[in-house]
Amino acid sequence: MTTTTTKFSDALTSGKWVLTAECLPPRSGGAAAVKRLAGELPTGLDAVVVADNPDEIQGSALACAAILAGEGRDSVLSMVTRDRNRIALESDALGAASLGIGAVLCLSGAHQSLGVCPQASGVHDIDSIQLTQGLKTLTSQGKGFSDRSTDPRPELLLGAVAHPYQRPLELNLLRLRKKIAAGADFLLTQAVFDLPAFTEWMDAVRAAGLEKKVAIIASVLPLTSLEKAKVLAERQTYGPVGAAAIARLSKASDPLGEGVAMAAEAAAQLKAVPGVRGIHILSGGHESLAAKVIELAALA
């Protein structure tokens, strides 16, 4: 099967600017909702990153990414190690490649007790670095976790998440090096609200020469309300939403517009940071905002 990754893989390998956006699979039993979503996502994106139950139980990320691929969109399938063991992850990765999905983003996932389903047991058979390495071995050698051969080998680009705000920096870089060594082709960062702390991290990344080994795509998140911003400020998963962002939203007459403007400003600033290869627009379930961020920040 011909993969639909041409646009995304070309962008990554050619060294040109990369633009992606996140999509939350609709909580729907039909394909129509995904197709509607595909219409809301800008066509200028190099890829749509399909989230894997980040905050609530949504539709299947694999099904959503496959439908998007069928609609001619490059899709990146997020796979969290929270919900599936190595058997299911490897099997789904093979299935993803068969369905025309060209890339997988490997994550550990937000802990289930933080909201997805607090009563559920987490799997955590392997971690995201082990998943990245396992899938790299699968794509490069055709050998999976059980060491069985695969014919043909799946064509999948592999991504991982980078955490610019995690300190100490020595520990941060140690984990980043492992993700690169495991075989990550691209890294998506947490949402950036605090540019000075991000540039401090990026300086350390450049000093270690890591940005030459992997494409670092910085994320922005349009905050949609003051309440949402306060919830995220309590959490670390999306990157710190600082007091400045909260203050700005609380003064705004149109918090949604302000949130989009802040994301666009962050994207424009990030584009100028040496070593940043692209922008990823997180949606938080508001996919239509990506187009506005792209327009305001002149990203396309």
Binding site: A110, D127, P168
Partner: peptide, 27 residues
């Protein structure tokens, strides 16, 4: 909380685990 064997998750801080503010991050 995630049994990570290769380093902390994105929710880790120097102060505490993502899951429980009263518990230090193992990593």
């Amino acid at each position: 909380a995630k049994r990570l064997l290769n380093g902390p998750c994105g929710g880790s801080t120097e102060e505490h685990c993502e899951v429980d503010a009263d518990r230090p991050c193992a990593w």
